[in-house]
């Protein structure tokens, strides 16, 4: 039984990360970018969120959820449910294309690819 115990925990080690960037990880880094926005949002505010990750991808869902995690106690919604939208873009070209396609206007930039956008008349 003891030798079985010794060998049976090996599968777990395959999944262990051997790195020391303590305590930096993707969630920590990602949510740090939202600190300024969070400070300016009154509790209970509803604000849309849009990222340029592929629709329905794990990356898009993950970014949305981390944005919500970072912005508590504000409520992050789908972009169609709010006039104001926080955007998370990986490039200026991607931002420009989105503003044009969605008929949104840029209301402010917050650094690290984060922007604040507002819907124009007739925008979705």
């Amino acid at each position: 039984m003891l030798s079985f115990c010794f060998f049976s925990h090996f599968p777990a080690w395959k999944q262990l990360p051997i790195s020391f960037s303590f305590p930096e990880n993707s969630v920590t880094r990602y949510e740090r970018r939202f600190e300024k926005i969070r400070a300016s949002l009154p509790p209970g505010t509803r604000i849309g969120f849009y990222s340029d990750a592929a629709d329905g991808s794990t990356d898009a869902i993950g970014r949305f959820y981390v944005a919500q995690y970072a912005l508590v106690p504000a409520i992050v919604t789908a972009p169609e449910k709010s006039d104001w939208i926080i955007g998370d873009f990986s490039s200026k070209e991607s931002l420009a294309a989105t503003l044009q396609n969605k008929h949104w206007t840029l209301a402010g930039t917050m650094g690290s690819g984060l922007v604040l956008m507002k819907k124009t008349e007739g925008a979705s």
Binding site: L16, F20, P23, N25, V27, P43, G44, Y65, Q68, Y69
Partner: peptide
Amino acid sequence: LLTNNNPHGNWDAWAIWNMHARFLYRGGSH
């Protein structure tokens, strides 16, 4: 090692449990 890699925990930790904790801590009357 795992906490070093994910100080906020895995997906459900920050999407559910720790997020609910943040509402309790940060939310006040909200």
